[in-house]
Amino acid sequence: SEGCDDGEIVIKFSHVVAATGHPKGDAATMLADRVNKEMDGKACMQVFPNSQLFDDDKVMEALLLGDVQLAAPSLSKFEAYTLKYRVFDLPFLFANLSAVDRFNSSEAGKGLLDSMQDVGYQGLGYWLSGLKQFSANKPLLEPSDANGLKFRIQTSDVAEAMIEAIGGNAQKLAFKEVYGALQTGVVDGQENTWSNIYTQKFFEVQDGITETNHQVLAYLLVTSTEWLNSLDDETRTQFLKITEEVTKAGNDAVADAEAKNRQRILEAGATIRELTPEQRAKWVEVMKPVWGKFQEDIGEDLINAAVASND
């Protein structure tokens, strides 16, 4: 399946997670399977997992140079190109994963896919990974519990402001270093999805995980406009249709996978703390001012559209 025949359009998909067992890796594999079966003779897709080819920073440049055709970096990686994707980072914006889905398929969400056309990128769909939870080396029930703690975050101004709002200290660390850093106390806590907390075993080296669902973690399936425009109409239509279907199927599986991994963490003997409505209200109250800081970058109408998707 991996060797491409002569005359086939080669589609290289480079990403940074394992080929299986991670929602992004699974979706990429699914996409490659379908393209290679249904577009046989016309196109052929090769997936390079685990940063084998490029990391998330350089893959964007490789897209422009035409050496890679597909990538799916985390949304927070697009800050250098557009600030609009910061909407996904806003804390306590989406009530649950279906709200995110509704926003993504709304006019506003779809329009957002085109927001980097001027730099030469075309978004093809949002690949959800889950909602993020906080964990630390001490119980976190109220925002004040996080005061003075060092949290590992992904590169994102919003996340940094969010950690500042709860009186914590935001630290950037490579993903693979997080376990060791939590264990030895280089950082006190982290925020991530159930699946990442489970597969990286963060729960082993934390006091417990607080079910905050405070932020969505999602990736953007992205290609270069130049490449997409170079396809003939029929091929492009077929390719985009497959992409759309795989995006939907992948996202539908995410909620399930998240619930399963949450359960596995419990079974491993870790503590999961649920917030009472009052406690949750306190977190929201402390973090909501963060929205205001980024309203100008994102656009008020976009935020309103996102809020509307909660109903």
Partner: peptide, 10 residues
């Protein structure tokens, strides 16, 4: 190319 699109570092 990087000079032309002028994008910034992370």
């Amino acid at each position: 190319r990087m000079y032309k699109i002028g994008i910034g570092l992370d």
